[in-house]
Design a protein around this nucleic acid. Structure first.
Length: 586
RNA sequence: GCCCCGGUAGCUCAGCUGGAUAGAGCAGCCGCCUCCUAAGCGGCAGGUCGGACGUUCGAAUCGUCUCCGGGGCACCA
């Protein structure tokens, strides 16, 4: 049983005694809060129950606290109890729980600190899900690092987690990509044109066009004058860029016929493969890649719309089908089928989330960019209209990473091709630094990402501080043999000799790990792990500087080596939760 | 206009399900390698927690109002 719970039950038992002795009016289930103290002088844990119940007990908080303290039974985990301040009950622990924590690290290994609060609940975490219309940029990187760390955290907390990437492989954006590719292809065939303002401008479009040109030669070549027949003028010529690109999409479909799908798929596949590789190299692997198109092909779109229809939440207006999302608090109703008969992106999303529910997940977690926040209400509304419990669905919004270079904010636009890709970032600062940096801030915090700083001062990144602690332990252990010293058998070493303050500080941090995992998982805050690791590394570096490990006294030496090995294990476990490597040397 | 997020040290941020003297990194200043990696350690300095009012034994934390910054409000995806 965890320390907090032990202390809670101790105090709870005392309260029952007080009530039965008529020294405290009966009260059902008082919330007994046991908190870690901030200052050493206040002991290890503190309880504020006396102040909470003072009014109820009609006596001064300190008096009530004194009554509780007087009746606390002796315990092998408590060395001292103090009454302090306005009525705090401060608990000072014995060394026994500290030693037990170290022993637990060895018996549980990489599972040390994991909990089962998730109770095996099935959770699906969907994240990144960037449109496959271009490479991932640094904004997606934040979602990737955060989502993956969250998934790992939830697994460590006992949830049955599946990760998923929703591929938007249907819809207008993909058609714009296909046209962009084809026009570049035509340029490779020698045609000249004013490239549409609304088409994708990035160099990767050339690459895709080139691969089509390699495999198909000039087979898809059409005269440029013919291509632009009947297409409305582009924006620079005083027209509308949306109408212009839509006109080109229609021309491409007409002129290419069956070959249009070839261009479309070439773009989709090359970019999806690229994204998949990028994420994989970043250490982010998805359990499933879910295709939006499959929703159309499998009939799930019709099923979802029909379900809403059956439940009475659809109506027709101006030729379109509307979903009455205002019934569930959305600010206006939303279109699901346009007057031209095409379903909207929102309709796909309804079908997609219905599919998730049908797959038996207890909880759906979506991680979206903050720019989609206006979208939350309508998807929640849709889930309720589908008769799903709205509390099972949760959207976590990740704020943008605002990029700075040379003190100037960078414009980010996929369409214009002006963006810093995730791959560029990884190449510049490395995977470990990038991942650690990303999860160092909670997701709803705006992030200023100074590229110059990340590049020029990458060795100052806190990730190295943590990794260095890990490498130092490895280095010490590696030198045992050279000095004719034995690797201690952790199960046979007495830890009683670990009495220095520095040692107790580390043991205390190791003990805290399980509380941190639980809190980080419940609150969906991987950054808590990052901050914890910094604290643990700091305790270790301080210890390292203050004491020698490879000493002649075998008993003390072995106890210290066991302690730093336990530290190494926890550092490695924590870094793994963040998807960061734990190097053995640096 | 409405909605979401943020405003804490010179800079970037923790702390926010109310607790005892508000923390860290970087930048600045002063120290520490004949000794297990100095990518380290110790110390100093640095604060009207945007502002006001309220709730409370107690507010950076909760509520209302307000100011400043970022984002979002499509039959686009």
């Amino acid at each position: 049983m965890k320390l907090k719970q032990q202390l809670q039950s101790l105090v709870g038992d005392v309260l029952k005694v007080l009530i039965s002795d008529d020294m405290l009016p009966a009260i059902d289930q008082p919330e007994i809060s046991i908190e870690r103290t901030r200052q050493k002088e206040h002991g290890d844990y503190s309880c504020n129950i006396a102040m909470v119940l003072a009014k109820h007990a009609r006596c001064a908080p300190r008096d009530l606290a004194q009554k509780i303290v007087d009746r606390l039974p002796a315990s092998k985990i408590i060395s001292k109890v103090e009454l302090a301040g306005p009525g705090f009950i401060n608990f000072f622990l014995t060394d026994e729980p500290l030693y037990q924590g170290v022993r637990d690290v060895f018996s549980e290994g990489g599972r040390y600190g994991h909990t089962d609060i998730g109770a095996g609940q099935k959770v699906i975490v969907e994240f990144v899900s960037a449109n496959p219309t271009g490479p991932l940029h640094v904004g997606h990187g934040r979602g990737a690092a955060y989502g993956d760390a969250l998934a790992r955290l939830l697994r460590a907390a006992g949830y049955d987690v599946q990760t998923e990437y929703y591929v938007n492989d249907a819809g207008r954006q993909m058609n714009i990509l296909a046209v962009s590719v084809w026009l570049r292809y035509l340029e490779l065939c020698g045609e000249e044109m004013d490239f549409p303002a609304n088409a994708y401008q990035g160099d990767y479009v050339w690459d895709i066009a080139a691969s089509i040109h390699r495999s198909k030669g000039d087979a898809l070549h059409r005269k440029i004058d013919h291509v632009f027949v009947g297409v409305p003028p582009d924006e620079p010529l005083g027209g509308d860029k949306e109408a212009h690109i839509d006109g080109l999409i229609n021309r491409a479909k007409d002129l290419l016929a069956d070959d249009y799908a070839l261009v479309f798929d070439q773009g989709l596949n090359e970019i999806t493969d690229n994204i998949r590789r990028d994420l994989s190299e970043f250490g982010v692997e998805f359990d499933n890649w879910f295709s939006e198109r499959s929703l159309h092909q499998s009939g799930e779109m019709e099923k979802a719309i029909q379900t809403l229809e059956d439940n009475g939440y659809l109506y027709e207006k101006e030729g379109a089908k509307w979903f009455r999302s205002t019934d569930f608090g959305d600010e206006k109703d939303r279109v699901v089928v346009r007057d031209n008969g095409q379903t909207t992106y929102f309709a796909s999303d309804i079908a997609y989330h219905l599919d998730k529910l049908d797959r038996g997940f207890d909880r759906l977690i979506d991680i979206w960019g903050a720019d989609h926040h206006g979208y939350v209400a309508r998807v929640k509304a849709a889930l309720q209209a589908l008769k799903a419990d709205k509390d099972r669905f949760e959207v976590l919004l990740v704020q943008f990473a605002i990029l700075y270079r040379g003190g100037e904010k960078l414009a980010m636009s996929t369409r214009s091709g002006e963006f810093v890709t995730l791959r560029e970032l990884r190449n510049e600062v490395g995977n470990d630094a990038a991942r650690f940096f990303y999860v160092l801030r909670k997701c709803e915090q705006h992030m200023d990402f100074d590229l110059d700083l990340a590049k020029s001062q990458s060795s100052d990144n806190p990730v190295y501080y943590v990794q260095y602690a890990h490498a130092r332990v490895c280095s010490v252990m590696a030198q045992l043999a050279e000095r004719n010293m034995q690797v201690p058998d952790s199960s046979k070493i007495s830890l009683d000799m670990l009495t220095e303050d520095h040692e107790k500080e580390i043991m205390s941090q190791i003990l805290r790990y399980q509380e941190v995992i639980e809190s980080a998982a419940i609150n969906h805050e991987p950054h808590q792990i990052a901050y914890y690791l910094r604290d643990l590394a700091n305790a270790f570096h301080t210890y390292y500087n203050a004491h020698q490990f490879l000493i002649d006294d075998e008993g003390l030496r072995n106890a210290r080596l066991v302690l730093i090995q336990a530290t190494r294990q926890v550092l490695a476990s924590g870094l793994d939760l963040l998807g960061v490597s734990a190097p053995e040397s640096m």
